[in-house]
Amino acid sequence: MPVPLLQRRLIFVTGKGGVGKSTVAEALALRAARSGLRTVIADLNADGHAHELEHEANLFRISVDPQHAMEEYLSLKVGGAAGQLLGHSRLFSAFAMATPGMRELLSLGKIWELAQTDRRTPQASPYDLTIVDAPASGHGAALLRTPRTFAEIARVGPIARQAAAIAQTLSDRDFTAIVGVAIPEELAVGETLELHEALQRERLELDAVILNCCHPDRFEPPEVETLTALDGGPYTSVRLALGADQRARMEREQAARLERRFGERLQRLPYLFEPELDDAALGRLAAELRL
């Protein structure tokens, strides 16, 4: 039996662009925080705060910035004269940032640090759970692959050791979970299945697949017959109802594709018709999650 999601220390949330990755990551974090876990949600957009900020009780937020992560790494891990020298060297900075994969590795290094029980950042309290609002599937899979390829390129030295440690953490299913988010549409489902294969090639697994934005499926076949008989007349509401039913049927097919592959690992979240995704709406989604 795999360890339940909320008992792990690190959860990556990824999926096709526009399927609601961030929303699902937020809902997961809210659920974790409200169940008493000290939770941090990390994004890689580098447009928020590079320091951890408390959003509500038990819920923290950080925007991981590779440049900042590098400076932190150098001062804490390398330290001394070398750390100082590198930290202040524009040459080194340009060099590191231009090195293929280095930005991803530095970001992952910071995420890894957040998830440790014994954190190297002085005076930092440990988190029970770190949730990563990861980039879209293609970039997300590349991100998760980075430590392994880096460990292979660098081979020796501290970076190779660090990269190997991160790679080890990512493949430890007691510690790390990867959650795929999809919506019940052809392309998003296809991309989720591709993501699954890409991760398996790296010996990683999707621990849960969350099918977001499931529209209500409320009409029984005889009801659809009744409605079809009235279609084409002046009843616009009947036309809309039939449109909704057509959508529900298409979604059923797409959900079945995922169900075949993921079985029990698949769960659904309802489509919300609210004008805005406010805290109350997010709370509703958080409560729906099966964890």
Partner: peptide, 15 residues
Amino acid sequence: APVLAALRRVTGIDL
């Protein structure tokens, strides 16, 4: 070069 010697210490010489 001192910067790059430090860099080597951090990255590993092969890299």
